[in-house]
Write a protein that binds this DNA or RNA. Structure first.
Lengths: 155, 155
DNA sequence: CCTTCGAGGTTCGTCGAACGAACCCAGCCG
DNA sequence: CGGCTGGGTTCGTTCGACGAACCTCGAAGG
């Protein structure tokens, strides 16, 4: 897709993976994006061990992807829940990308287990690669990657 | 984004992560998508330890995301290189999603280190959430997720 | 009061995966 | 022959994931 020699040290793919690339982080975000907010529910739905989950939630909060919000259920003491921030919401396309790939290649002839609809019109939602001229890219092969800025120094 | 109780066991996000969610896999695919094909180059650019890289390449080949292609450089013995298959190319949107998030939130005021251009018109390429009616979604909040098929059984 | 309950953790011992350094192996080159 | 180079494998150590058990706070029940 491009010729190869540039500085990877500040690559955004690597940077993002350093933040959310650990084993359970994206599954936690999947739950958050489905509106699951409570520790025990996240644990139940993801299957992550408690200690790991505590740690992942803490890093996600630290990075401003989730925030801890106190709440009070009636007849309960005050607890807190985890909600997506705007920064966290912007990771949804990543989840959708993973989901679409899985739907295409992992479904054993089954129907995909989850459909995404446009809330206002009900039509199915999907991800598109598109350029500023408005062309939709039929394949990733139409992408040309160009290193910029500080990445230009080789190695 | 939706109410919470359905069967996660065959979620496509989890399934895809089981295939490419390990620490170095997506970085290997980043290199593959940039046209880096040789073991030593992939190792140099990703920084993955050799043993781990051997293992990841093997799993990616096993899953049909990369294929081993024999080649012959002049004055060299026959070796093989790793190339993206169509199935692997379809992971590029995932990489782009990670990259766009990193560009937006991790750039310390720097210019993003890599630009993607439409090969045929040169305009910048980006990912869009769009529905079949043609509406572009301004935010992931406009998505409504609906469990289907075998996922409908709770828990 | 004292006990129980349950959410949201923390601690601990074990065990597997990741790490880096060292080694191996097959050709081609001189 | 001996060395070099790409593509690995082996090995000992370290680090993180795991699951079970324990802790803590506040509300409610007796």
């Amino acid at each position: 897709m491009s010729e190869a020699s540039w500085d990877r040290s500040q690559c955004s793919v690597a940077g993002t993976l350093a933040v959310v690339g650990e084993k359970w982080s994206l599954l936690v975000l999947r739950e958050a994006s489905h509106g699951v907010r409570r520790f025990a529910d996240i644990q139940r739905y993801t299957g992550a061990p408690k200690a790991v989950l505590t740690d992942r939630l803490a890093t996600l909060v630290e990075h401003g992807i989730l925030r801890r919000v106190p709440y009070q259920a009636e007849g309960e003491r005050q607890r807190h829940e985890y909600r997506l921030t705007a920064k966290g919401l912007d990771l949804v396309p990543t989840l959708v990308a993973l989901m679409e790939w899985g739907d295409k290649y992992l479904a054993d002839g089954e129907v995909p287990p989850m459909a995404l609809e446009h809330r206002s019109c009900g039509a199915p939602v999907h991800l598109e690669l598109r350029c500023d001229e408005g062309h939709e890219l039929a394949s990733a092969r139409e992408i040309h990657a160009v290193p910029k800025g500080a990445a230009l120094s080789p190695r």
